[in-house]
Every structure is written in C-alpha cells, then in structure tokens.
C-alpha cells in the first residue's frame, strides 16, 4: 500500500523549547496511525505542522505528495482537522454550524448533506438548538461531523476522546474504525495507551521530541525482553497438586501462558518513567 503521509526529520522549537527534535514516520493510505505520547510531548505541534497551521523549523512533510509548507492549499483540500477543543460556534445551532462548513467547502446539496450528517451522529433532535446547550459528547460529535463534511482523504484527530465518558469514547472508537474501513486515513494523537492499542494499525511513540519506537502494536510488544511464563490451573486444588508434582520432578503442566507486556508497560519502560497510577487527565 502506498504512503499518504511522509514526515522526515521534522524540527520545531518555540524559543528555547525544542518540541520536535527529529521526527520521521510514514503513514499508509487508509490506515489508522496513532501518535502516542505524554502531555507536552509535542503531539499537537506535529499535528499543527501537518495540517498547515504551523511552519516547521526544519525537515519536510508531505501529504498526498504535496509539501505541507509550500503547497498548503493542495494539502488543505485533502485534510480535515479536529483539534483538542471543539471547533464549533456556541451561539449557532448544530445545523447552522454544519451549513457554514458545507458552504465553505462548496459542497453540492448542502441541506440534504447536513441532514445526513446530523442523522449519522444522532443529532437530529438537537439540530436546531444552539450548541451552547449541547453536552460534551454531542459537541464532540458535531465537531467531528463538521470535519467529515466533504469526505476528506486524511483526518487529524487530536486527542479525540479526551474528556469523553466511556460510552462516547467507545462510540468514537467505532467511528474511527468505520472511517478507516471507508478508506479515510486517520491520524490520531492520544495519551491513552489502550486507545492506541485498540485502534491503531501503526503506532509511533513520541518522547522528548523524537520518535523512540514505531510499529504495529504487536511489533512494539516484542521490543520488551522475555518475561518468563506463568501456569494456569482450573482450580486451587489442581494448582496445589501440580505444585507438589513439580516439586517432586517436573511433570507435564496443563496450561502454560507466556507473560505478554501490556503496551502501557512497553511505553513506560521506553520513556523511562515510573508508573503513576491510572491518571487519565
């Protein structure tokens, strides 16, 4: 499969803060790519450069063969950005928000397209209410619907599930999978490891301005050294018996499961951080 995004040696600093030091990766057309990193790792900076909002200090990035720096208009015609904060007009209704994007993208039959998207995202009932009355999940759905109008080839989702409740989060995961199924390339950033593990075909871990590991979730897991094995038994009694037998002389064991590290362990080991509970802010 051909690559739709190529990034090589991307650099970006804000004064003395070197956010991206040397970032390279490629993304295959129609795949789900996750850029994984802690808060402040530079994920948003990378997204901003790729979506032409920010200029890199060095390196090169292309989308669909177009240079993000020099061929911005061609890139912008292919992509859609959903940032961390819902990009919606609060005082306008959901319908009006979609209508404006449809007009700006010069789509044909905007009215019926708007109704379609409202339906797809379960916003029909709220369509004519101002967005200020929407819940967080509804706002996010509207935000994504606005991004999807005009069927962009590449969609950037910057921390799409941050602040969503578990139900809306699962709905978002389904949505992302369906997008990729329809051929859209999805670039998502996340600090949630299980999200990357669950969704992505390809993961790049961004830490201190560099990609420290890259590959499929499966491949990333093989980076970790062997971690021994553990035995599974149907009951305590069996386990006791087996232990006795083992102590005596090592007889065949019923179930043997190798310990696989979770992606979270891989991540934390790679970036050399201590595990700090389950903080998911």
């Amino acid at each position: 499969m051909e690559n739709i995004i190529t990034v090589s040696s991307l650099k970006k600093s804000f004064k003395t803060n070197h956010v991206l030091k040397d970032v390279s990766f490629t993304i295959r057309k129609g795949s789900i790519f996750a850029l994984l990193g802690s808060n402040g790792a530079g994920k948003t900076t990378a997204v901003r450069i790729l979506s032409t909002l920010s200029k890199p200090d060095g390196g090169k990035a292309t989308i669909g063969g177009y240079d993000v720096e020099r061929q911005g208009d061609a890139v912008r015609a292919m992509i859609s950005l959903t940032g961390q904060f819902a990009a919606v007009d609060e005082v306008l209704t959901g319908r009006e928000n979609l209508q404006i994007i449809g007009e700006l993208k010069r789509l044909p039959n905007i009215k019926s397209k708007v109704n379609e998207w409202l339906g797809t995202f379960g916003l029909e009932d709220a369509a004519d209410r101002p967005v200020s009355t929407y819940s967080g999940g509804m706002r996010r759905r509207l935000d994504i619907a606005m991004s999807l109008m005009g069927n962009p080839k590449v969609i950037f989702l910057d921390e799409p599930t941050t602040g969503l409740d578990p139900q809306n989060r699962l709905a978002m995961w389904d949505l992302v999978k369906n997008l990729a199924k329809d051929g859209t390339t999805v670039f998502l950033t996340t600090q949630y490891l299980e999200e990357a593990e669950h969704l992505a075909d390809h993961i790049a871990i961004l830490h201190e301005g560099k990609i420290i590991a890259e590959g499929t979730p499966g491949k990333l897991k093989t980076i970790m050294p062997q971690r021994g094995a553990h035995l599974n038994f149907a009951s305590d009694a069996d386990a006791q018996k087996a232990l006795q037998l083992l102590q005596q002389n090592g007889i065949a064991v019923g179930g043997l499961t190798q310990n696989m590290p979770s992606l979270e362990e891989v991540f934390l080991t790679l970036i050399g951080e201590k595990k700090e509970g389950e903080s998911h802010e």
Partner: peptide, 9 residues
C-alpha cells in the same frame, strides 16, 4: 478552536 478549523481549510 474554530480559527484552526478555518485555517486548515
């Protein structure tokens, strides 16, 4: 965020 949406269009 709205300005980023417009700028990326």
């Amino acid at each position: 965020g709205i300005v980023d949406r417009f700028r990326s269009m």
